[in-house]
Every structure is written in structure tokens, then in C-alpha cells.
């Protein structure tokens, strides 16, 4: 039986690395973490989604909101890596271009 992957977050030298499954049940927590990380950083905000096995539309909405907040401050959101599922979602919805992919 496949179990749901718990979402994770860890800091690397050059990016915040998210992992696991990000769906509507956890997006409020992911949003809080991302906005806090944005407040505590400067310049381009780098995010790695290479370990994210599932991202739904509410997770995508959080990424778009994060980008909007960064842009209001003259900054940008750069997704440095994405798993195949995330790439597929970015491609389907055409939003990859918003995150520098």
C-alpha cells in the first residue's frame, strides 16, 4: 500500500528544498513557511522542488502568491529544480515560465 508522503522542507546553501506531497491539506503550512523564508531572505528566492512527488493546484497557488509577494519587493522566485510530476504540472498550466523554468 502506498502511503502519503509527508511534506518536508530544508535549507541548503543556495535554495530552500521542499519535498514530499504538497496538496490542499498542507498548503496553509507550506505557505506560512515560504512567506517566513521570504521575509528572512534577500534577493532572488531560490526554491528546489526536485523532491516534491506531488503538487496540486492549491500548492501551485501558493508558489504564485510567493512570486507575487517577491515581485512587489522587486525580487524574483527561481525554481532551481523540479521533479517530473512538477515539471508536468508546470508544462500543462504553462506556469514554468513564471519561475524561470
Amino acid at each position: 500500500m502506498m502511503a502519503k508522503d509527508i511534506w518536508t522542507a530544508r535549507n541548503a546553501d543556495d535554495a530552500l528544498i521542499l519535498g514530499g506531497e504538497i496538496d490542499y491539506s498542507v498548503t496553509p503550512d507550506v505557505r506560512e513557511l515560504l512567506l517566513k523564508a521570504v521575509r528572512e531572505s534577500n534577493g532572488t528566492f531560490r526554491l528546489s522542488l526536485g523532491d516534491v512527488h506531488y503538487l496540486d493546484s492549491s500548492g501551485l497557488a501558493v508558489l504564485i502568491e510567493t512570486r507575487r509577494i517577491l515581485m512587489m519587493d522587486g525580487r524574483e522566485l527561481k525554481v532551481t529544480d523540479a521533479s517530473p510530476q512538477v515539471r508536468k504540472l508546470f508544462s500543462l498550466t504553462q506556469v514554468g515560465i513564471l519561475f524561470g523554468m
Binding site: 504564485i64 500543462l92 498550466t93 504553462q94 506556469v95 513564471l98
Partner: peptide, 8 residues
Amino acid sequence: TGLPLGIE
């Protein structure tokens, strides 16, 4: 396909 509505 274009971007979803409400973003840009």
C-alpha cells in the same frame, strides 16, 4: 495553452 486566468 496559455497561462491560467488571474495571474498575469
